[in-house]
């Protein structure tokens, strides 16, 4: 720690709560008497508080994305269920009537829906740390 003025690293460590008690006391004692270091300490504290705001915003954003993704997944799962139900309902009738007839529309809808669900899971996996 400089005798003339406090080092920026010391000020940053102080506001980040990374100094020992004795070093922190030195910072406080010097900043209590030196206007320049007091001003630099205030700037370091503003940056530290800004980090909190940034972290809160980041966390809120991640939760928002996860919430939207979960809602989209739920909607798509519901779509898959509807498509699957439709297939089940239609299948016996078609087999009874037309033998080898295929069901292109429901099958493609199902494929689209499942691929969209997979995409949404892939999106989820990229964002949070949970799968790391």
């Amino acid at each position: 720690m400089s005798a003339a003025h406090l080092l920026r690293a010391s000020l940053e460590a102080y506001v980040a709560f990374e100094l020992t008690e004795s070093d922190a006391a030195l910072v406080e004692a010097h900043a209590g008497e030196c206007a320049l270091c007091a001003s630099r300490l205030a700037a370091a504290a503003r940056l530290e508080v800004a980090f909190e705001a940034i972290a809160n915003a980041s966390e809120a954003g991640r939760r928002g994305r996860r919430g939207r993704s979960a809602r989209a997944s739920a909607a798509l799962c519901a779509g898959v269920a509807v498509a699957a139900s439709a297939m089940l309902l239609l299948a016996p009738r078609s087999h009874a009537g037309e033998g080898e007839r295929t069901f292109e529309a429901p099958a493609s809808a199902l494929a689209d829906a499942t691929s969209a669900v997979s995409d949404s899971y892939a999106f989820d996996a990229a964002a949070p740390l949970a799968r790391d």
């Binding site: 980090f51 940034i54 972290a55 915003a57 980041s58 966390e59 991640r62 964002a127």
Partner: peptide, 30 residues
Amino acid sequence: MLSDERLRVAERVLSRCTPNARRVFELAYA
């Protein structure tokens, strides 16, 4: 403490971090 513009700058910085690093930062400060 932070304007919306600076918050966007910070968001860009965090978006370039790994998910691990971002989560660690969030846990440390939020």
